[in-house]
Simulated assay, not measured.
Amino acid sequence: MTQFKDFNFKLVVIEQLMYIDEKLTPQFRLADLLRERGLGDDPWEYAYQHGLEYKVVPEARDHFESLEISNELLAEVEELCMDGGNRIYQECAPVWDGEDDLFDIASLDDLAKLPNLRRVLGSEFLGPGFQDDLRVRGIVAD
């Protein structure tokens, strides 16, 4: 199993593979997981009832932390998109407005897991040092 050092980087990779390319299946829906566990079916309501506003819901974190992604799938990733509107963020933290650092990427150590990554959209959200790291690796930092 491929271990990621940065959970938030893994989320961006999952966004690409699960919600954009639809190659990593089944697609995760927090509402479905809550319903399966008898915890209701409204992620917003669940977050508010459990003091999880602007936080990652533990059940979502557990799911994505344990989600295995094959090296073959990782090798298919050619582009990533850094955007506060990514669906994965809604599934992790349904009451999140993008106004804090909850999903900021702290490390690019996991780039080596994506040998065919060619482009990162929204790279300005990574900060100038990280943008330089991408360019040095020959990755377009849009």
Rank of each mutant, 00 (worst) to 15 (best):
M1K: 08
L67C: 02
R37D: 08
S107F: 00
G129D: 15
Y48G: 11
Y46R: 07
P26T: 06
A31F: 08
I105D: 02
P43A: 11
Q3Y: 04
D42R: 07
G98I: 02
F7L: 07
R135H: 03
M82E: 05
G40N: 12
F64N: 01
W44K: 11
L17T: 06
G40A: 12
E45I: 10
P58T: 09
I105M: 11
C92G: 06
N71P: 05
R119Q: 11
F103G: 00
D133F: 04
Y89R: 06
K55G: 06
V136T: 14
E76C: 12
L117W: 03
A93W: 00
E99T: 13
E59I: 13
R137Y: 05
G129F: 11
P58G: 12
V95T: 10
V77E: 01
G122M: 02
V120Q: 04
D6P: 02
S70C: 07
F9Y: 04
D132M: 11
G127C: 11
P43W: 10
F28M: 06
Q16V: 00
T2H: 10
Q49I: 02
Y19I: 02
T25K: 15
L24W: 02
K113C: 02
V95N: 08
I20K: 13
E36F: 09
G98W: 01
F125L: 13
V13M: 00
L17C: 10
M18C: 05
L73V: 07
L34H: 12
G51N: 14
V136H: 07
E72Q: 14
L108M: 14
W96Y: 11
L73I: 08
P43L: 10
K10E: 06
N71E: 15
A93C: 12
D41R: 13
L121C: 08
Y46M: 08
A60S: 15
E78V: 04
W44Y: 15
G129R: 13
Q16S: 13
R137H: 11
L24K: 02
R119G: 03
G98M: 05
L33E: 15
D110Y: 03
D132S: 13
D104L: 10
Q3V: 04
V77I: 10
G51S: 11
R29E: 07
R137N: 10
K5Q: 14
D109T: 06
G38T: 09
M1T: 11
G40C: 13
P115N: 09
D97R: 10
D100L: 06
K10I: 07
G85M: 07
W96M: 06
E53P: 01
A75C: 05
G85E: 13
I20P: 00
Y54M: 14
M18E: 08
F130A: 15
A47E: 07
F64I: 01
R87F: 08
D110G: 04
E36K: 14
E124F: 12
R118E: 15
E79K: 12
N8F: 00
P26D: 08
F28T: 01
L34K: 09
Y46H: 15
E124K: 09
L34E: 09
V120H: 05
